[in-house]
């Protein structure tokens, strides 16, 4: 259960950007959809605790992460929110094992035997254990994504945020990884929020579709009737986009 009501004003190079996002979700897969620059990543970063809203309220499963009225703002490290950045941001100087073990190690990076075993288990689950001593630069895009997911899940997050998880992959690999990630994530039973502007991601993942436009959420649609329905999902999405376009023109 995610409850999100936030506002944020940002001074950018192209003037002021105002973000206002209100959404309540209790589904397992929520998809943030919208053009780039519509505030999707900013919203995700506010949930993760990397950016502080101007005001509002964020809670996960009833646990308050941010509340401007009560002056609560938990730091990112205590939020237990897993966050997969767009290019994964694997630590370039650490091996796959040390990347996955990062959240399990002490201040100076020592992995005890249990932590090492746990990291190997995760790498095995994601079928990249053979690469345990490879640096990120020595892996392919798909392998990097698996290691990054294993790293995020090693910290035992309550929710997982994925920022355009497939945009860094080439098109054929994208189709394959979409299927694999979906089945892997279903083993974990944690709510996932995915940012995308790819209709195929919406079709494959969305239980709830949250449509962003110019810093606002203009639609929240129950997408379960369309999920996994291929053409039907794409058509529904197209109709939705046209609807919103028409509304914005008349307004």
């Amino acid at each position: 259960m995610i409850s999100l009501h936030v506002q944020k004003k940002l001074q950018g190079p192209r003037g002021t950007f105002f973000l206002k996002a209100d959404v309540e979700s209790s589904v397992s897969h929520m998809v943030f959809f919208g053009a780039s620059g519509s505030g999707k990543t900013l919203t995700l970063q506010m949930i993760a605790g990397l950016i502080t809203p101007d005001e509002g309220y964020i809670s996960v499963d009833g646990d308050v992460l941010y509340d401007s009225k009560k002056r609560i703002n938990r730091p990112a490290r205590t939020r237990h929110v897993g966050y997969l950045l767009q290019d994964y941001a694997l630590f370039p100087h650490l091996s796959a094992l040390d990347n996955v073990g990062f959240s399990l190690s002490g201040t100076f990076g020592r992995l005890d035997r249990d932590a090492k075993r746990r990291a190997h288990e995760l790498l095995e689950r994601f079928e990249v254990d053979a690469l345990w001593n490879h640096l990120p630069a020595e892996m392919s895009g798909g392998q990097r994504q698996r290691v990054a997911l294993a790293r995020a899940l090693a910290a035992e997050p309550r929710i997982l945020l994925l920022d355009e998880p497939f945009s860094a992959l080439d098109p054929l690999l994208r189709v394959r990884m979409r299927g694999e990630i979906r089945s892997l994530l279903s083993d974990w039973q944690i709510p996932v929020t995915i940012i995308t502007h790819d209709p195929d991601d919406v079709e494959a993942f969305a239980d709830l579709l949250v449509f962003f436009s110019e810093g606002h959420i203009c639609r929240c649609e129950d997408w379960t009737p369309n999920r996994g329905k291929g053409e039907r999902s794409r058509e529904a999405l197209l109709n939705l986009v046209q609807d919103i376009d028409r509304e914005q023109k008349t307004a």
């Binding site: 970063q45 993760a48 605790g49 990397l50 730091p75 990112a76 490290r77 205590t78 939020r79 237990h80 929110v81 897993g82 966050y83 950045l85 941001a89 630590f91 370039p92 990062f102 959240s103 190690s105 002490g106 201040t107 100076f108 990076g109 790293r151 995020a152 090693a154 910290a155």
Partner: peptide
């Protein structure tokens, strides 16, 4: 990289050294 480390539960000292 530092943001990623923060969401992985690392303290600022751990982020600096690692």
């Amino acid at each position: 990289y530092e943001d990623a480390a923060r969401t992985l539960g690392a303290s600022e000292a751990k982020i600096f050294f690692l």
